[in-house]
């Protein structure tokens, strides 16, 4: 169980997140939505201990993150960043995924153990990256690359997977492919998922619960039906929309209204 208690943090002296509290239980599939600058990525950074809370605390199974070493944290929590750093060396897909075993290797251990290789083979099967093994990372398409990055995160054998806009820059085919993969992991392995997303409809479709952020505060938390109402979206995104039910999944679906998004009202 991951818990945020009244967390306030930011960069330099500017607070980005204010008094954030929520809990993620084992096996949850939680989505974080909100406009640009509402603090979504910062939230992931404070949960993954890149950023320290100024006030409040983040706990994992009742233990504060400051008591947990990075190495231990890396065995329990993995993150798929929004955009992979430009790589200066060309790793093969297999070598890149193997780096996910880093927290399990000891200082004097030069090579990965049989166990490490077994885990990596397993996640490569799961993410359908076995066929890419010898390819170079920069020669992959967007979808293949994202599967590879997810495979590396899974090689850490985490209980919690954090995803920062995993479907940005992907076409709909690959968006669905990636999210189906994550949903599958969530259901089969009971993997806890926290996903930051800009795509309200994808978030509604896949997440069980949503947190709507506004200017660094939790505006509302609840099921997609509760969160994605036209009133909420108008208040938080300042955009006029129509919300209907998807005829397939009966989840809410947000429609834009062109030409009328900035309504002036008293």
């Amino acid at each position: 169980m991951l818990k945020l208690e009244k967390v306030t943090t930011g960069y330099n002296t500017k607070a980005i997140l204010n008094d954030i509290s929520f809990t993620i239980k084992k096996g949850d599939f939680l989505g974080v939505i909100g406009p640009n600058g509402s603090g979504k990525t910062t939230l992931l950074r404070v949960i993954s201990k890149i950023l320290k809370p100024w006030k409040g605390r983040v706990t994992l199974e009742e233990r504060g993150l400051d008591e947990i070493k990075y190495r231990e944290l890396a065995k329990r929590m993995a993150i798929v960043p929004q955009r992979m750093q430009e790589l200066f060396f060309s790793y093969s897909v297999r070598d890149f995924i193997l780096l996910g075993r880093t927290p399990y290797l000891r200082r004097f251990q030069l090579l990965e153990s049989e166990e490490d290789l077994k885990v990596v083979r397993g996640v490569m099967e799961e993410t359908d990256t076995l066929g890419l093994e010898e390819r170079n990372l920069e020669d992959l398409s967007g979808g293949e690359r994202q599967r590879t990055v997810i495979a590396q995160a899974l090689a850490q054998e985490p209980e919690i997977l954090l995803l920062d806009e995993p479907t940005a820059h992907l076409d709909i085919n690959h968006q669905v492919e990636i999210l189906n993969l994550i949903k599958n992991l969530n259901q089969k392995r009971n993997l806890t998922v926290l996903m930051v997303s800009h795509d309200l409809n994808l978030a509604a479709e896949y997440c069980e619960r949503l947190i709507l952020l506004k200017e660094g505060r939790v505006f509302q938390e609840g099921s997609p039906q509760e969160i994605l109402t036209y009133q909420n979206i108008e208040k938080v995104y300042k955009t006029l929309v129509v919300v209907e039910k998807s005829p397939v999944s009966f989840k809410p679906h947000v429609f834009l209204v062109s030409g009328r998004n900035k309504r002036k009202q008293v």
Binding site: K69, E72, L87
Partner: peptide, 13 residues
């Protein structure tokens, strides 16, 4: 070589 934050995520001090 993957980047500093990435290294931190993989448990490197």
């Amino acid at each position: 070589s993957l980047g500093e934050e990435e290294a931190l995520h993989l448990g490197v001090n």
